[in-house]
Write a protein that binds this DNA or RNA. Structure first.
Lengths: 199, 199
DNA sequence: TACCTTTACTAACACCGTTAGGTAAACTTG
DNA sequence: CAAGTTTACCTAACGGTGTTAGTAAAGGTA
């Protein structure tokens, strides 16, 4: 009785097809111009078919942002295995975060609400805290012999995350408005080093 | 011959009326739901009238974002006069930046492209660099006896700006996704102090 | 008064997200 | 195999968006 399974598989295929087509459209034309009708066109089905697989456009964006978080998590996981020294690990996490953002700007923008509404605000807690947890683990590893208070560690984690996210956001959204060509990855590397030195 | 002047005055009034009505609509309902038709409704004129005063919707958003930058600049200017000590001044700038963001979230979101496309990218250099220049002046005042290189000073400026912008962005966009109630102004205050100590 | 410029309007175009309703094919059951 | 049911898919519409062409009226000028 493989009939039901084939149907489920077909339904699954349609779903992933919609998502991959949507992502491609976004990569080509940006979030602004993504529309249900364009997705329908690209998958060569009529518009209402999409609503058989997703509740609405927001649900598609939400699913794509989850993909983004998962993709980021995979690289951070690799760092965790590759770098036993917490300082090296923290450097690697920062590097991965930065390069994830600029290799996948569509994902980063969707995940952090740059240039478009965040999707799934409030429903996405574990994924959203993923990066914070990875750098938190590394920072705790670095400062553990310094007997810092939990509060101190906590704000160091947020400070680290924030400086990365802030740099990325400014460069990504307003790069052409900054009259300073040194606003690039070197700024981040230097900032990360200064941060580590003062942990 | 006050006729021409009255007309210019009336045209000016209409323009500012459109802008203030648009800002009010945004404060009430958010950027997402702002539309030309709602503006037309609120000023009690038909839609095309708006296009006599602004090229398109983007131009209205651009003008509003300029208002935002000007409002921020005024508070920073006050700090410059009030605090002769550069360290106090830097603290005050950070405080002003944070409180500007959360007292005027609509402006901040528009200025930095949070949750909606930035308007006027590339046309807004001087205004956009305003905050960087204010904190740059203060930081240079603090580190001047330490004979830091220009590069070092420059990346400290961006690091300071980034950590503020990053914190604000995360709290503003994803506050409900952070499972940590300590993510608040105290984090910023502590981070600012740590930053100043290590300048 | 005749003319011209400005002001404002209605109505349309081409999109958008979303959904109601219908048809024809595919499958299930007797 | 025939009848009934479920599924897949479509067309067409609703109400919304930004934008603009064309037009009528009002105001000022000669």
């Amino acid at each position: 009785m493989g009939i039901l399974e084939r149907r489920i598989r077909q339904k699954e295929n349609m779903r992933t097809n919609i998502l991959s087509v949507a992502l491609q459209l976004v990569k080509d034309e940006g979030w602004q111009s993504l529309s249900i009708r364009k997705i329908a066109d690209a998958i060569e089905y009529s518009v209402p078919v999409i609503y058989d697989h997703f509740e609405n456009k927001e649900a598609i964006l939400f699913e794509l942002s989850l993909d983004g978080f998962r993709l980021l998590e995979r690289t951070l996981e690799k760092n965790k295995k590759k770098y036993p020294d917490p300082t090296d690990r923290l450097r690697a996490h920062a590097e991965s975060y930065w390069s994830f953002a600029f290799k996948n700007p569509e994902y980063y923008q969707l995940m952090y609400g740059l240039g478009m509404p965040c999707s799934g605000v409030g429903k996405i807690k574990p994924e959203f805290n993923c990066f914070r947890n990875f750098i938190g683990e590394a920072i705790e590893g670095i400062v553990k012999e310094k007997k810092s208070s939990d509060d101190e560690t906590c704000f160091k984690i947020y400070a680290f995350w924030s400086v990365l996210h802030g740099l990325i956001s400014i460069v990504m959204m307003r790069c052409s408005d900054i009259d300073d060509s040194t606003m690039n990855k070197k700024i981040m590397d230097d900032t990360v080093e200064a941060f580590i030195k003062n942990l």
